[in-house]
């Protein structure tokens, strides 16, 4: 992680969905490179293909054409085991709907990826508690999801995403279901993690607050990259957003 190698490289990714007889092209050729440790936000109107792009990067779905490289490995070449390993250890996912497993406590949710990774129980529990501490929920480790607020559930999800020290965190509208203040707390937390742990964070959002913490913002619309802005350039265009 010394020199900023590209951890995610997307090349010519196209995604079609077949709906009956019509083919809808949702991603129309995306090229993108993301460096290790970057905090990247993907902005775009609803239906522009953010979630679809995320699913490609996270190995949850396969592109119709083009390739996604993680650590310069084409993930379409991976078999089911390697793909599961990638999801387990390389990538942490955070969803708009939190997706905490309802029948498990906060701690069990956080340790589940460690179970899959083959980490012994004691070690997993200890690490799970540390992670819950980082997200400020140490005292809540025995709580079930329905006993937690939305913001708290999202914190559990963040702790869970960090379980196996992933290189990349993919967050699809992590603040989409939260109120303003809670959303801001989550954004601050993500920023802190990207700084302290050097995790690459890729986040899709409608939330303009997210822009301030991003190293780069990728604007997509209608399945294409419209523009990419570095943080330095942002302050200039930010004024215009309000006008639009």
């Amino acid at each position: 992680m010394n020199q900023p190698a590209s951890i995610v490289r997307i090349s010519g990714v196209i995604k079609d969905f077949t709906m009956g007889k019509t083919i809808v092209q949702v991603l129309k050729g995306i090229d993108l490179e993301i460096k290790a440790g970057e905090y990247v936000s993907i902005m775009g109107p609803s239906g522009s293909g953010k979630t679809t792009l995320f699913n490609m990067i996270g190995g949850l779905d396969k592109p119709s054409a083009g390739s996604v490289f993680i650590d310069e490995i084409d993930i379409s070449q991976l078999d089911a085991y390697e793909l599961a390993w990638l999801r387990c250890r390389k990538i942490g996912y955070i969803f708009q709907t939190f997706n905490i497993i309802q029948v498990m406590t906060a701690l069990e949710n956080v340790t589940l990826p460690m179970v899959f990774a083959g980490i012994p129980d004691d070690e997993a529990r200890e690490r799970g508690m540390e992670l819950l501490d980082i997200v400020g929920l140490k005292k809540r480790f025995l709580h079930k999801p329905f006993e937690l607020s939305g913001g708290q559930q999202q914190r559990v999800a963040i702790a869970r995403a960090l379980a196996n020290d992933p290189a990349i965190i993919l967050a699809d509208e992590p603040t989409g279901n939260l109120d303003l203040a809670t959303g801001e707390e989550i954004i601050t937390l993500l920023k802190m993690l990207s700084r302290d742990k050097e995790v690459t964070i890729i986040s899709a959002t409608h939330d303009l607050k997210m822009l301030n913490v991003s190293d780069r913002v990728i604007w997509i619309s209608d399945g294409k990259i419209e523009k990419i802005e570095k943080r330095e350039e942002l302050s200039i265009s930010l004024g215009q957003i309000g006008d639009k």
Binding site: A80, Y81, R87, R89, Y93, N99, I101, L112, F116
Partner: peptide
């Protein structure tokens, strides 16, 4: 789906 995202086979 969540379990699969976390690495379940």
């Amino acid at each position: 789906g969540t379990m699969k995202c976390l690495g379940a086979l």
